[in-house]
Design a binder for these strands. Structure first.
Lengths: 335, 335
DNA sequence: TTCGTCGTCGTAAGCGCTTACATCGCGTTG
DNA sequence: CAACGCGATGTAAGCGCTTACGACGACGAA
């Protein structure tokens, strides 16, 4: 226990050098008030001199807390996930926890990775779109609190999401009532993710309320790449539609660009709307009408809730829904 | 050691229930080949039944490795950091390590947080723009390998960055030679970050090569918010300049939009260029001429290098520079 | 038959912290 | 002046893993 064997300093080296017990060193670092000022200073001097940094793993083992949360996202494209992470990190940091991120896109052993992660964190938040098996989800939930994002499906697990159905309905109704659109298409795959499903539901609801028959959705992922295909699909047969409600902005921007390139008048001939309000939405011409979500706040709230769960386990799972905001620009037909 | 006291299962509970020693359980999980198939199956069955997840902290303590890297970024705005993180996470994951992110923006005890982080990871990468004191940097470097991003300043620490000076020079020369610009302004604060400094250096170099006198930079942060101010500053006095080289795309987009709104012909009357090639750059009209950086690859390479450092400590610090690519669109004057 | 050898598994010693509890001086108080 | 209380510190028992080492059979070779 004496004189570090050449390696990095441990609490023993510090205690040794300062002529105190390791308990005192620990106290100096965690509860400075409980140790006499003179001893404290002596210890701190040694800490500084040796460049001692307490080992987090050892501490975690002793206190039975990792002081870290896991955040599992499919990827980090676009502002959505980045904002989410930003908000979450802030909220977690306020509680002294760090966040370890796991990006599942392109990985084939997601279940294994998620389980492994579960051993290194105190709580875990899972994006709804993440491909985890029910078995893994159950195992993880048995071990620690789990919060799910943008997926209100499983009522048994607590979830957070932003409002989708009503905003989609409102947006669709705007196109129908204000801009007189009668032949709208929804772009996105409802079965792809829960929020897309809800957005399409709102799209359908608005049609029913207006006595119109909603068209089947045009399948597409969240990526820009699908834009060209969707656009040409819309163009073929002389452009049967007069409005496109896209599941997100990437899609909308891409589709709109193709339509404009093909000489189609947007929004004169056809309206285009998106979802997310990415930066590009306010820089393109015409400005993209879209729906803005309080993603940063969402992230922060999730973190705060997680911290609460960590203190006080037993509590019925709640379904939190944050409000979204319709952002009208020119692509829908507004001035 | 027998029958878990009600809490989560440990390796002891599993061993107990499977009628083997904890060593065997550990082997089953880490080196399945070293244990007889029948025992292995029995243990795995119990693991499944109990939902056992090994505690990462305990493992880390035992193997003296956290299997995690720290990534310290100022924030997560824009595609740059997100792509960096994406690439890094991928590279780290390939080595079985997870990454814990620390966002410093808005936090006032960055040094403390960084030190604390150093106790929970095996290696750490620091964005150059992050405000860490030299003392902390030294302490952390003494404990684990540190890689710095976008800051080639301290030659003693290994760094990664993308090429700035030459691309900036090339871009500026393009404006001068091809588009006949003679009165360019650089927007951004060179003292703000190392890459801005380098970009301005390239701007200056191009001027000198062309026998022109470079103007002083127009100070601005990386945020869009500065756009309006910069734009009006450019407009006052009858728009003395015929080109604006911005330190990044946010700035460029914002400035360009203001100029256009003020009725200025871009690029007819004045060229505008950015840096980063964000999504909006290819959707605006005119398309934004900018510089594209291989950020994702950068992140991955940094992670790979970190893994190498973790295996084989002693190695001279190198300064890695990744090539960038000039993306000519219409905002500079190109067709 | 005896003695390696090898595969399989248990024993036990840590890994570097935290913290309940015991200890030890002192200044107080009756 | 003795008993007591209290603040400051040390003692030591874990926390849940990994792994060197050794024990133990079974088996093939001598």
């Amino acid at each position: 226990m004496v004189e570090s064997t050449g390696r990095r300093p441990t609490i023993y080296s510090v205690a040794d050098r300062a002529g105190v017990s390791i308990a005192t060193v620990s106290r100096v670092l965690r509860r400075p008030g409980e140790v006499r000022a003179s001893t404290r200073d002596r210890v701190l001097a040694v800490v500084e001199e040796l460049g001692y940094v307490p080992d987090g793993a050892a501490r975690s083992l002793a206190v039975k807390s990792h002081e870290a949360h896991g955040l599992v996202l499919p990827e980090l494209r676009g502002p959505y996930y980045a904002d989410l992470l930003t908000g979450y990190e802030q909220g977690a940091a306020e509680g002294g926890a760090s966040v370890v991120v796991l990006l599942t896109h392109g990985k084939d052993d997601v279940d294994l990775l998620v389980r492994r992660l579960a051993g290194r964190v105190d709580g875990m938040v899972l994006m709804g779109a993440v491909p985890v098996s029910p078995g893994t989800l159950a195992a993880v939930r048995a071990k620690l609190p789990v919060l799910v994002l943008a997926d209100r499906h499983q009522v048994s697990v607590e979830s957070f999401s932003t409002e989708n159905v009503r905003s989609a309905e409102q947006l669709t109704r705007h196109l129908i009532d204000v801009h007189g659109r009668r032949s709208l298409r929804f772009v996105g795959s409802p079965e792809f993710a829960d929020d897309v499903r809800e957005r399409y539901a709102g799209f359908v609801a608005a049609h029913e309320a207006a006595g119109l028959v909603p068209a089947e959705p045009v399948p597409a992922t969240f990526r820009e790449d699908d834009g060209p295909r969707v656009a040409s699909l819309l163009l073929e047969g002389g452009l049967g539609s007069d409005g496109v409600v896209c599941a997100n902005d990437e899609l909308a921007l891409s589709v709109m660009q193709r339509l404009l390139a093909a000489g189609v008048d947007v929004p004169g001939r056809i309206s285009v709307t998106g979802w997310d309000d990415v930066m590009a939405a306010r820089y393109v011409t015409p400005g993209l009408t879209t729906v803005s979500q309080p993603v940063r706040e969402l992230g922060r709230e999730v973190a705060v809730r997680m911290r609460a769960l960590l203190e006080d386990r037993h509590s019925a799972p709640e379904q939190h829904v944050l409000p979204t905001r319709l952002v009208l620009r020119q692509s829908c037909g507004c001035a």
